[in-house]
Design a protein around this nucleic acid. Sequence first.
DNA 1: GACAACATACCGACCAGTTGGTATGTTGTC
DNA 2: GACAACATACCAACTGGTCGGTATGTTGTC
Lengths: 216, 216
Amino acid sequence: MNTSHTLPAGKQNARSKLLDAAIVLVRQQGFSATSVDELCAMADVTKGAFFHHFASKDALGAAAADHWTETSSVLFMDADYNRHEDPLDRYLGYLDFREEIATGEVADFTCYAGTSLQECYGSSDAIRDAAYQSIAGHSERLAEDLDQAIARYGVPEGVTGLSLGLYTQAALQGAFILAKGQGNAAPVHDAIVHLRRYILLLFDREGLTQKKGCER
Amino acid sequence: MNTSHTLPAGKQNARSKLLDAAIVLVRQQGFSATSVDELCAMADVTKGAFFHHFASKDALGAAAADHWTETSSVLFMDADYNRHEDPLDRYLGYLDFREEIATGEVADFTCYAGTSLQECYGSSDAIRDAAYQSIAGHSERLAEDLDQAIARYGVPEGVTGLSLGLYTQAALQGAFILAKGQGNAAPVHDAIVHLRRYILLLFDREGLTQKKGCER
DNA sequence: GACAACATACCGACCAGTTGGTATGTTGTC
DNA sequence: GACAACATACCAACTGGTCGGTATGTTGTC
């Protein structure tokens, strides 16, 4: 990673402005439908600057996936739910948090990684790998809490933290697609209700009807 | 050229060849990345034929979503699992069937509707509506079995057949995205294992460790 | 001969990427 | 600390090719 060079430190440089623009535009329009000119216009940089920082449009798409990984990593790392002592509470708090941030415009709460992975998996290895790594890495951090919860409370044979983490991401990514069809976040909230209920049933917790679950 | 002597409804005309080509190419490359020329080449028709049958590329995308709805509707309607007397068995059979057909190349088992909905929701109302209707309609038919199962066996407060049907589709659509990242169908199989376990727990059936569940 | 179902030829807009350049650091040497 | 040598960051103009779409011609069928 060569992100931190010699920047004036006060202003945002062309590279990071382009990455931010990519996150916004690709979530709105998709990767192919977003032109380099459009990206430059939103970032307020020239085309020359674009190709100075990125070898190709694909290279920007992959770099933006890494950028997405970093920013969302910070977002979730700093969130309050991590302060729960109980690992199961941390997972349930994660679901609550995801529900909270799923508001407003669809393009503002959907996932850059999921969108570009869906669209570019066949045409760009770099984008596919970076986007999948974003989702897989996120699942792995979820899996840590889930494995601790499994160790503490037990769970039916064959259930692993990583499998549950990936399944959680799958349900959320699919809910984002439904949200795009409906034009609102309702499918995301519905999916999280089901995910929460699944986890509570799996861990044999009967907080079934309450929304927050596990308040101890 | 080919068998265009017999147009009257019996042979494959340009329109349906283009629809078939769209299903294949859009699943491989996405909608924007697939050009009209490419579609015509695969369908072995000319550009004039394309714009004779479709007012625009978007119109083809929407028509292909309807075409997808029809073909997949037939696929699932004719499948054996519908012959189960028990509605819960029909749902579980549906999951088994989805697992069975998730093999081979990723582009061959993923969903045209989910792919184009994810990509085109912001740029084409016609594609968005047709693609969402494809998924929502499929969920509604699932919901019929689930509502019957709920009526027969009961389920925790607030759980509806439609909500479960949509959640099932969300989990599958998300699993398709993960499959595109991994390059194989493993995430689809994993997601179905979790879906099956959720349903069995929800309906208080302890067929937890068996794969098929509910064999009666 | 009317009409649907194509085919051919072509258009202007837009596309990703290139070019040749400037302005502003940074670094090593004396 | 002066200065050459080099590196980085960015710019405006341009290019060759591709895009979705159109205008018009041809052909088989009723």
